[in-house]
Design a protein around this nucleic acid. Structure first.
Length: 300
RNA sequence: GGUCGGGUGGCCGAGUGGCUAGGCAGAGCUCUGCAAAAGCUCGUACAGCGGUUCGAAUCCGCUCUCGACCU
């Protein structure tokens, strides 16, 4: 195994990951790979809290502004993208910094995803439109019929999982379970995970502040300019969907802003639920640069 | 001092003798190709004390408390 190391910074939204990642990149004189499922889109700016222009100029960032909202991006695509970015970085450095809040993407990068054939667009479309037209009950019936094994074991109230199961079966003729070997891939680098953590009150305060600043910076205008794209998955994003509701006349501006704050809190909570169970993460408070440095130094 | 109303879980709010509303906020969790997504789970609370009753948040009495009005 090589000596190459990925330092991975994780934590809830608004906790201060970006600042730390830039500090670490400077410290190790290297580049950054983001694993944030929304910051990769060029069209999304104010609402997704990207690194500043100065930070982007100073430090090379991968997976920031790298895609368009009209492109398909998912965990598997990210895995390939990030692995090749890491290989690129390791040509000249022995350390890469990763930073983000999308747990599934982090997992895909560290452990890989099982190989499942690409699903044809037509199968995907028909599965989706079937659900939209006939509802959950129809979906459950289809899964019970086509993949009873999954139906009996699976999450039958979760439409997203059911659709995935159905499209795999319809497209490949095999149950999705037959692909899920759950084998962790071996990487040619080691990973050190640094978690950033703040008390609930502090984090809520930073979330509220961040949202207020986004509004001041003109988030509403940005969202208005994207109304025509509101059906795209990339726009199913906190900060955007709430303002679409406002522009559709469903809620007042004040309510939309409150909803953004609430949904950001919910999101942060889900992120922590995900990261907490990863025992390889070492947790620090955002200001504890000394602790983080010694952790990275000692274990090397 | 008197009369009349009220007091329901963190908040809002229904319930008028047995069938544990509901909403919001909050908490816990799941996670293999849409993940800033999608989904799951969690509150016997009825101001207090006593009584009636097989059974009371619901009826009766007293106490406390909030409000309105009266003298």
């Amino acid at each position: 195994m090589s000596d190459n190391t990925c330092i991975m910074v994780v934590g809830a939204t608004a906790v201060g990951k970006t600042a730390l990642s830039v500090q670490l990149a400077k410290l190790f004189n290297t580049d950054i790979i983001s694993f944030d499922s929304r910051q990769c889109y060029q069209e999304l700016q104010i609402g997704v809290s990207k690194p500043s222009q100065a930070q982007l100029k100073d430090t090379r960032h991968y997976f920031i502004d790298s895609h368009s909202i009209s492109q398909q991006v998912n965990a598997a695509i990210f895995e390939q993208y990030a692995l090749s970015a890491a290989a690129e970085i390791f040509k000249c450095h022995d350390t890469a910094v990763l930073v983000g809040g999308t747990g599934l993407y982090a997992q895909a990068f560290c452990e890989g995803l099982d190989e499942i054939p690409v699903i044809s667009q037509s199968v995907r479309e028909s599965t989706r439109s079937g659900y939209e037209a006939y509802g959950l009950h129809w979906l459950q019936q289809q899964v019970a019929l086509n993949d009873p094994g999954y139906f009996n074991a699976g999450d039958v109230l979760n439409p997203q999982r059911l659709m995935r199961c159905l499209e795999v079966k319809l497209s490949t003729g095999r149950s999705i379970q037959s692909f899920q070997a759950n084998i962790k891939k071996v990487r040619s680098f080691q990973v050190k995970k640094i978690g950033l953590q703040l008390g609930k009150e502090m984090l809520d305060r930073q979330i509220n502040k961040r949202v207020d600043v986004m509004i001041e910076q003109g988030l509403a205008e940005e969202v208005r300019s994207l109304v025509a794209c509101n059906h795209l998955n990339a726009l199913n994003t906190v900060g955007y969907k709430e303002l679409f509701e406002h522009f559709e006349g469903k809620v007042s501006m004040g309510e939309a802003i409150e909803n953004i704050k609430k949904h950001t809190r919910d999101y942060a909570k889900r992120q922590m639920t995900w990261f907490r169970r990863d025992i390889s993460i070492k947790w620090f408070s955002p200001g504890d640069m000394e602790g983080i440095k010694s952790e990275l130094g000692n274990s090397k």
